[in-house]
Nucleic acid binder design. Structure first.
Lengths: 205, 205
DNA sequence: TAGATTGTTAATCGATTAACAATC
DNA sequence: TAGATTGTTAATCGATTAACAATC
């Protein structure tokens, strides 16, 4: 039970902070034109103690220069490599409602780790419409599109009543990772990964 | 710095598990017609060790019967009381974009622990529009409305560039809990609680 | 050199789990 | 009574923070 912990164990909490560092650095390099940042400054922007920033990074290597700080672009690239953000994952979103539209917009503005390449919708009235520069497709095209375009992730933003059906279509089309925004627990084969983002849980604390 | 810990400290992790227990119990009593459940069974459904279930609950009181288990309905109601799910919280949403609209719809259909009673938007073009049966109000009215209508929670669904400004207005209006959907970390006075629901972090793990 | 800041070790703090008496 | 299961204490495990030598 305490076998195999090894020297190379990395805390879950650390892994979850990496995306925060990444996005902060991305913003710094894009909009603020800052070349070098100290752990204190980076932490300050995120509400994380400098000592924790350094500890987190130290699990993966030495990225800073003592007495100076971290090169923003360099550290950004290093974290990208750690997170596997280099290869952008392709995602198909099902449900071109308000939430779907919001997510597509989100994806354009901020640096998501995935790119929504296709949008599907059941209601024929919406098919052919554009969300940003993505044309809404018919559900009938899911299977072929997922295969041809090598899509890895399915995003479910349909009403609860349709969520399970849509999920099954995604799985059948070959999707193995699903990001579920509907308030129901999806039933999927074991090999399919579901991440639930149930907004209705809300502030319960 | 280690002052005031007191006997009545409750771990953050415990508090975050309560909604899970609640929803599981709710499902059990609604659909499965189960009256009594052991910590082992309840934990099993959630992937949580029985010993942790018992410890979590023990922070709040004694809800079970030794040798028997927990009364499903009774425990559900107890947790509801702890979480304050009985009294529905009122929330003001700022930003009547796609995400804001999606949340208002969500709130109507599923059982959120809060009710969105007002929607505000900066762009004058949208003021007076209806989201469901809520009329979009001008930002100028925030302060007065929050006070008159006794609103507890602010939901921020504006673009990143506006989020901090909007937050300050909410805080000034007397809001002490903020649910932040913008991708930036909000700066707030110590007494204000922020829950970040940053969708752009996405599937990064 | 003097000041700044990293990377890392050790100490502290917080959360989980094991063990078990109490009780149904 | 025998078996089951709670509530709680103590032990363990994991994460954060303080402290500081190394180094720019």
């Amino acid at each position: 039970m305490k076998v195999m912990k090894g020297r190379n164990y990395i805390p879950k909490a650390t892994i979850e902070r990496l995306p925060l560092y990444y996005r902060c650095l991305d913003r710094l390099s894009s909009y603020e034109d800052i070349d070098v940042i100290s752990s204190k400054e980076l932490g300050g922007k995120l509400g994380i103690p400098s000592t924790q920033v350094r500890k987190d990074l130290s699990y993966y290597g030495e990225f800073g220069r003592r007495g100076v700080g971290y090169d923003v672009d360099g550290l950004k690239r290093s974290i990208a490599r750690i997170l596997g953000i280099n290869k952008l994952w392709s995602a198909a979103l099902v449900g071109a409602g308000n939430l779907g539209t919001a997510l597509v917009n989100y994806g354009r503005s901020s640096s998501m780790a995935l790119k929504i390449t296709n949008v599907f919708h059941a209601d024929p009235g919406k098919i052919g419409n554009k969300l940003g520069d993505i044309i809404v497709q018919s559900m009938k095209e899911i299977k072929e599109t997922v295969k041809n375009d090598n899509i890895n992730i399915g995003i479910v933003t349909v009403p609860a009543s349709e969520a399970q059906k849509v999920t099954e279509e995604l799985v059948e089309a070959g999707i193995r990772s699903i990001w579920n925004f509907s308030p129901i627990r999806l039933i999927v084969p074991e090999e399919v990964m579901v991440r639930n983002e149930d907004l209705s849980v809300g502030i319960a604390s």
